[in-house]
């Protein structure tokens, strides 16, 4: 597979390691009253869709960026690649 790195251009997926669903960015609020359930669902449950999937890849043999890759799990077609950091910022994780 080839991942089109938003900063560095197309790179072979062999340079990357894979983590999983990009929802792993959404770490729950540990102070929330239902934090135990929140963390359980956050860490363990997955949509695991057959189709479009937003997922985290780490450019280990490269610039060490975490990317959010939108990839179809049936065809492997990649439609979007973003810096995970930008996604996290957009989700308000800098607060």
């Amino acid at each position: 597979m080839i991942i089109d790195h938003p900063l560095l251009g197309p790179r072979d997926a062999a340079e990357f390691t894979y983590l999983g669903d990009a929802t792993l960015i959404n770490r729950p609020d540990p102070a929330a009253p239902d934090a135990a359930d929140g963390f359980y669902e956050y860490l363990y449950l997955r949509d695991n869709p057959a189709g479009e999937h937003n997922e985290l890849w780490y450019h280990e043999q490269g610039d060490r960026a975490w990317l959010v890759v939108s990839r179809n799990t049936l065809t492997h077609e990649i439609t979007k690649v973003e810096l995970a950091r930008d996604v996290a910022l957009r989700l308000g994780r800098d607060r």
């Binding site: 597979m1 072979d12 997926a13 062999a14 390691t17 894979y18 999983g20 669903d21 695991n48 057959a50 999937h53 997922e55 990839r71 799990t73 049936l74 065809t75 492997h76």
Partner: peptide
């Protein structure tokens, strides 16, 4: 090592 339903893998 990545999520897939494609029943095929890659070269690496």
């Amino acid at each position: 090592g990545y999520n897939t339903y494609a029943q095929r893998g890659n070269l690496p």
